[in-house]
Simulated assay, not measured.
Amino acid sequence: MATIKDVAREAKVSIATVSRVINQDDKVRDKTREHVLMVMKSLGYQVNVNARALSTQKTATLGLVVPDISDPFFACLAKGVDSIARQHQSQVLLCTAQNSSDSEQQAIDSLLQRRCDGIILYCTHLADSALIDIVERYSNVVVVARNIPEIAENCIYLDDELGGQLAAEHLLALGHSRFASIMSELPIQDPKHRLSGFNSALYKQALTLTEDQVVYGAPDQLGGELAANTLLKNQQVFTALFAYNDAMAIGAISALEEAGFKVPDDISVIGFDDICLAHYSRPKLTTLHYPVEAIAKHAALLAINKHTQLDKTAHSHRYQPTLVERQSTAFAPIAASKQSLNENQTERQN
């Protein structure tokens, strides 16, 4: 195996020069850098990353914790982090947490032990107090999708309440007055805030969403299908359905159509996130765009800048969702056919 001495001898430069090239020192001339890198490649020299980390106090790694990499939303999040890592000649160390606070803490501890230059967390189970403790001890940790005032400068999140409000306003503008919702059962802020925004917009029009009209389930397609079936089984009558995310919305559409309803002719369905499947579902899904890749890139840059102490901001970073209108929402059934719709729904549910 080639050593740094072999590279220096073959390149006819000092060991110190080879070391500077390895550590990406800007003081090395471009011509010399290219020559040394070419020699390293020809000899098959591999950098000792542990030794470089001791010398530079940088590991050239970014850590990322997400609940489930099979979810398109989190795959997009990982893609955004990876793009920034590559720009900084770094690699992403990805950990998935298995829907428990213990697994999330284990994943975080693993990344901390590897001394990542920055760590991005999307945690659904760890309490705010636990995240506060981590960030106070490690300033290069950035929390995504949580707004925690005590560590606001390390938080990047979406205005979920605004998203719920926009969803309701869109459906109200289409003349709907009978609503239902399917939300994530996970103990996180997102579903509460989205539902709160939705209800606030309804309240302004003297409308309400009762507890019976909201069903909670797993935030995936199967969860959406089961939640929609529960609404139908309980004989809830509605012409518009607000889903926690696109996956639940797509699952709900499947359940509604299997029960004999047409989307959007009988029931309009709106999702949240705007994952790639939203464009290709049938009908194409109306949804709220979650700029997840932009947030991921922002989080990665913030983590790197916190590590290098380039970022000294003392404020949180909030993004806003936008409505993407496609084909799964339409005008509510006209007043003359409301009674007919109600009777049809009751017959189909029976």
Rank of each mutant, 00 (worst) to 15 (best):
Y45E: 00
I304R: 10
K338V: 15
E104N: 06
A300Q: 15
F74W: 03
M40K: 06
I334S: 15
A303E: 14
F272A: 08
N245M: 03
A145Q: 14
A51M: 10
N50K: 02
Q98D: 15
Q24T: 13
I253E: 00
L158Y: 09
A255G: 06
R114C: 12
S177D: 10
C276T: 14
G251E: 07
L62C: 14
L241A: 07
R33H: 08
A97Y: 04
A16S: 12
V263D: 02
E34L: 11
K262Y: 04
A97Q: 03
Y122F: 15
V292A: 12
D30Q: 13
E347L: 12
T313P: 09
N245I: 02
E347K: 08
D25Q: 03
L112F: 04
K58Y: 07
T96M: 14
P191S: 08
L171G: 14
M40R: 10
L231A: 05
F238P: 05
Q57N: 12
H289L: 10
L288D: 07
H193V: 13
F179A: 02
Q91Y: 12
V215Y: 07
A78H: 10
P333D: 05
Y280F: 11
E104G: 10
V292I: 15
M38F: 02
E258A: 03
H176I: 07
L323D: 06
V7W: 04
C123G: 02
Y122A: 12
A2C: 02
K306R: 15
R20A: 12
F179G: 06
L37T: 07
V81P: 14
E185V: 04
S129W: 01
L94D: 09
C76M: 14
T56I: 05
C276F: 08
A180Q: 09
F73N: 07
V49M: 11
D102M: 13
Y203E: 11
L222I: 14
D273L: 05
Y138N: 15
F331N: 14
K41H: 04
H307I: 06
Q105D: 08
T59K: 02
R348H: 05
V143T: 03
A278Y: 03
H170A: 12
G118Y: 03
C116T: 13
S103H: 06
T61L: 11
I151W: 01
I132S: 01
L111N: 07
L202D: 00
A228K: 01
V142R: 01
